[in-house]
Design a binder for these strands. Sequence first.
DNA 1: AACCAGATTATAATTATTATCGTTTTATAA
DNA 2: TTATAAAACGATAATAATTATAATCTGGTT
Lengths: 147, 147
Amino acid sequence: MDFLTRIEELRELCREEGIPLTQQRIEIYKVLLASREHPSPEIIYRKLKSDFPTLSLATVYNNLEVLSRLGIVRKLNPLSDHARYDGDLSSHTHFVCVKCKAVEDIESEKIDSIQIPDPPENGRKILGKTIQFVGICEKCQNEKQEE
Amino acid sequence: MDFLTRIEELRELCREEGIPLTQQRIEIYKVLLASREHPSPEIIYRKLKSDFPTLSLATVYNNLEVLSRLGIVRKLNPLSDHARYDGDLSSHTHFVCVKCKAVEDIESEKIDSIQIPDPPENGRKILGKTIQFVGICEKCQNEKQEE
DNA sequence: AACCAGATTATAATTATTATCGTTTTATAA
DNA sequence: TTATAAAACGATAATAATTATAATCTGGTT
């Protein structure tokens, strides 16, 4: 899907959701689409600041969350801002709840048996590989229904 | 591998590395081994604080890093402390450099063609799944050699 | 027992993110 | 257009996680 189509898609989604499509929203999305580096809010902010001097960092944070909610942008690290450790070194799969940040082990023979080949190293050194699921855990699902 | 064996392994590794095996190091490791919740440093700290009132939070942070370096503990989220976003929603795989936190796309037909079945939901709602590699990127590898 | 590298503690500093609040835009309809 | 209400924006303050610092203290070795 090309650039302009994706902007149109954003426009359409905003209309459906009944939220305004602001200049800032578009520009932030554009930077993300044009980027290959999986940027942080800070990076996006700095790229736009020269052209839009009044842009606020908080606006970048907010809009990235909105775009995620619309489903047209992906947050790579649902656990950002909380270091988490595991003493179990055996190969296994995690499920991360995007709401409460709980991490659960996934018990599945099928998934455990999947062989993931190492990618071409290209000068990199591969130290580990994991499969990770994200979603909403049982507890948070139940709380949602009570509303 | 059982509990005591793993403590012995820690003892052995510390000797090899020439670093002291402190009371705190052992206790922090024990908590992690006994835990199923993939705890944060803060959680581990709180669990130990009552039995070891002088324990410092910084010590927990430090030791978790040491244990990771020794390879007997795994940090789940190499990107903790920086939110990162991706505008590319197609199914693809990431490589995260543990040193500079760069995120690169992995281009591999083989890996892209892997089918990962959804796990049993168990009341959960699965929203996404990813394969992630961690390691050291080309740039950081080169810098290392210059030392 | 004495030494020393490294660890620990307490605390200060830093950094990323979120909240607040007055002002400004956007979308819609007269 | 212009009026209007809802929502977003921008500036900055507040919060929370993590890291750095400096003064002791310890584990392991001689």
